[in-house]
Amino acid sequence: MPQIFGPAANSVARVVLLSILITPFLAIALGYALMRSQYVTGASITRDQPVPFSHEHHVTGLGLDCRYCHSSVERSAVAGVPPTETCMTCHSQLYTQAEMLEPVRTSLAENRPIHWQRVNVLPNYVYFDHSIHIAKGVGCTTCHGPVGSMPLMRQAQSLTMGWCLNCHRDPVPYLRERSAVFDPEWKPPAQQEEDGKKRLIAYLIDNKHLTDCSTCHR
């Protein structure tokens, strides 16, 4: 009778046994890493927009405040993207024939809105409110990154729940004074720990409720 198991059968058996032990851990680690990768979270991915709007030019170059366009951010959950007429407040007088702005002019002329590609997206089961973050001293660039140096908008942070909880568990390193919330250049100063603790109390931030599920999920 011919041999069923050749000389290599021992090695095969050993490799298979080893991989039964190792492969599940590797698979989970791969999954873990994958879910945090830029591919899944969308961080640092620049999306193509119908109009290549440059925050760098408008914010750093011209000095526009965030609220000029994202006007509802202090009152509403939604910061929003400005309506076409906001763009036209300037561009009806500046760069009126620029080819880059053709979609904007067309939008106003035909009364059809511009379809922007959404960059910072949270899942539908997360109920995020901009206005409360602004009111409590969390600045725009803390979450949205150095917008003033972005020629094209990208998602600067991973926006995962773990990343959000990082601040919700301990907001102290991120709290600014209210006048600095819209400062695109703000960096936490040396005494941020001390200042932050004071602001935690002054801004009536309830640490206990911040980590309740009902804060974001309802």
Binding site: S72, S76, I114
Partner: peptide, 26 residues
């Protein structure tokens, strides 16, 4: 399978002229 792990693209479509008194989200 991996591709399905990433987010489908989403759009934001604002107004052309926002009605007076209307704030999105309120």
């Amino acid at each position: 399978a991996l591709a399905s792990c990433s987010r489908p693209p989403e759009e934001i479509v604002p107004y052309v002229e926002i009605p007076e008194g209307l704030t999105p989200g309120i």
